[in-house]
Design a protein around this nucleic acid. Structure first.
Length: 155
DNA sequence: GCCAACGTTGGC
DNA sequence: GCCAACGTTGGC
């Protein structure tokens, strides 16, 4: 069992969009970074815990808890010439970009990035490293527990 | 809108 | 294979 933090721009897919999706599940499309892809392709397992993070918005932070809900499979948007995520170099028999489905466990009170930066028990998180841009980062068990504790009784 | 960080591209 | 230029991310 592993844990992850996955960034989503609320304009694209917010925690409420995830809650409203069929089966409260969305394909994590649009990742075009090899490191992030490799996490989905090689390291994620169904049932892994996910911190659903709102980025590029007024109040960035963890907005809910989710889980990995599928094995990796090709991201359909890479074959769609009209999609901003279109990749002309990718072919259906040799897809470059794989994704997993992500399923909501529960929406939480927002744990703002600002607050996360202040909490000593979260300082090891990759998210907080200066210049971190990776949209998917591993979360270790201590960090996961610490975040759960912070979110625990604020349903 | 600025800018730091860093991934990607392409010339050599 | 190096590395400069360029593009993107994302907080502020």
């Amino acid at each position: 069992m592993s844990y992850w933090l996955m960034k989503s721009e609320p304009d694209e897919c917010s925690i409420d969009d995830l809650a409203a999706a069929p089966h409260r599940t969305v394909p994590w499309f649009g990742v075009r970074n090899y490191q992030a892809r490799n996490f989905m392709r090689d390291d994620m397992r169904i049932g892994d815990g996910v911190l659903f993070y709102h980025s590029s918005c007024a109040e960035p932070g963890v907005a809910g808890l989710a889980e990995v809900a599928s094995a990796p499979y090709p991201d359909a948007t890479q074959f769609d010439a009209k999609s901003p995520y279109f990749d002309p170099q990718s072919t259906p028999d040799k897809p470059r970009w794989l994704l997993v489905d992500v399923k909501l466990r529960r929406k939480t009170a927002l744990l703002p990035l600002k607050r996360m930066r202040e909490l000593p028990q979260l300082q090891s998180m990759q998210l907080l490293r200066p210049g971190n841009r990776l949209s998917i980062t591993p979360v270790n068990e201590e960090e996961w527990r610490a975040v759960l504790e912070l979110l625990g009784d604020r349903r």
